[in-house]
Design a protein around this nucleic acid. Sequence first.
RNA 1: GGGGGUGUGGCGAAGCUGGUUAUCGCGCCGGCCUGUCAAGCCGGAGACCGCGGGUUCAAGUCCCGUCACUCCCGCCA
Length: 588
Amino acid sequence: MEQYRRTAHCGQLTLADEGKTVTLNGWVHRNRDHGGVHFVDLRDRYGLTQIVVDEDAASKVREQAAALKFEYCIAVVGTVRRRLNPNPNIPTGEIEVSAGEIHILSRCEVLPFMVDEKSDAKEDLRLKYRYLDLRSSSMQRKLKLRHDVTFAVREFLNGEGFMEIETPTLIKSTPEGARDFIVPSRIHHGKVYALPQSPQLFKQILMVGGCDRYFQIARCYRDEDARGDRQLEFTQIDMEMSFVSRDDIFAVTEGMMAHIFKKTMNIDLSLPFLRIAYHDALNRFGSDKPELRFDMELQDFAPFVPGGGFKVFEQVLESGGAVKALVVKGCAGYSRKQITDLEDAAKTYGAKGLAWMKVTDTGIEGGISKFFAEKTGEITAGLGADTGDLILFVADKWQTACTALGAVRLKVGRDLGLIDSSRFAFAWIVDFPLFEWNEDEQKWDPAHHMFTMPQAQYLDTMESNPGDVRADMYDMVCNGYELASGSIRVHDPEIQKRIFSMVGFSQEEAQKRFGFLLDAFKYGPPPHGGIAPGLDRLVMIMAGENSIREVIAFPKNTVGISPMDESPAEAEPEQYRDLGLQVLPEEE
RNA sequence: GGGGGUGUGGCGAAGCUGGUUAUCGCGCCGGCCUGUCAAGCCGGAGACCGCGGGUUCAAGUCCCGUCACUCCCGCCA
């Protein structure tokens, strides 16, 4: 290899290098043999350089060139010269390298798919041959972006006085929330480690340990079904800070996001981010991770319901539910089929149906309009609807009505092309409820984790009115994705006890599961809080992708399999024996 | 756990209400070609249409089942 080691990479040479003798290493991207003259596009991570073998080249070089096939890994020794026909589409388009020697470093079998941006091989195949997929410039660009983002994170947080500290990935299972991945212990038969769903407890203990400002690019594991924006293992920019309030965390996180976008994409984010209360996010956008790149807010139709005689709406209101309306500008021409498609979107989220009416120049028509004809003026004025608009309604429990109509809003927004894909619409969602009512078990559950601080003004009424308690908790959202979640933590053992008892968690149980954290809190814990932006989702959004698999080098597919290494796989029998494990037959 | 979509040479697709020899592009093999850059031109090989069953004179096409992938609901503190 030594003698063929590159002296330049494939994105580097310009007219300034004219006349130089260079050695290039790379892969055969394209091969254009014109009989007399032969072109080879040589590719590496940095770009493409055109190699030329002229008719008057030595016969050995001509033979070597003729033997080349797609994705052979080669070395070329040649002379940089000006192109007769420059190609303005590539950075090296003004030069080419006239080959004096070509050496095949390794051969490549017939490809399962072309290494090409235009290749649209199915994702499963791309994942099986990920090493080929990664050679494409789009994957290279995304991996580079991810690297740049990670680097910018470290750069910024280091400048803000954060220490990067590693926490263990073999920890005690604390079976709250998601399912844990379990690692059986060989030394201690019957006992298991768990892979962390997040470094949550450890980073809080780091605060007790006086670390003050911590971060970690942390791999997290959750044994739940995957999605386009969810993987079994994923990466968080995990942060925790001592002696801070919510606004301090917002300021640091906003600064970090601004730094990331400026450094990697030269985009100036406008700070501070919008803040929306959880209740308002649902009420106005039908989601706790609202897509804010277009308006079209949900509205309350309840004031117009009484006296209309439409029983469905009246009954929902009587039982404490809500009737939400969505005015879709200029879509009175929607066909029944189009409305049915929207109804399907609403039903997916639990709505029983999607009511509608159209605004025409003579009033309101179709759907449920006959019940409200007398209030036409009142309704159109109240909702801001004009001739040519379509009005859609969902009546249900407040939350269901909001989320179902929110799904319709999102579908309509996408269908109508209302979303400017070049924008990044950030916001903080604040004032989440601390508890949520568990209908099945007739008890209060923690809405987040149990170490989330209630907001101070609710401390006195936490037991008497738990449903109204707001948490000192926040999500950062962008373009309809939850990008980060965090909170101010409970550091007062008395408050912690009250929360445990609210959610029906005994002291014994708490001690058994989180004893080490509770013990730590006996020794002068500082007030603290933190946040954990998801690195995969952040890079996905920045790259304009809609699956985090596109920004993870070796992702699992949606059924948790890695098609390349074929994990998960059975272990050797002696491995099970070492662990004292026996695999039971699958239950029907 | 539930719902939708997809499955046709190595890859991506077409194939309508069932009807000869399953079509196209890319790739592959052979040949031609002095300036291309998704090079071009000529020729060729390669598919039991995911799998199993059924209906029919006849199934890629219709029915039932099943598997794989994918999107979504549930789930994801």
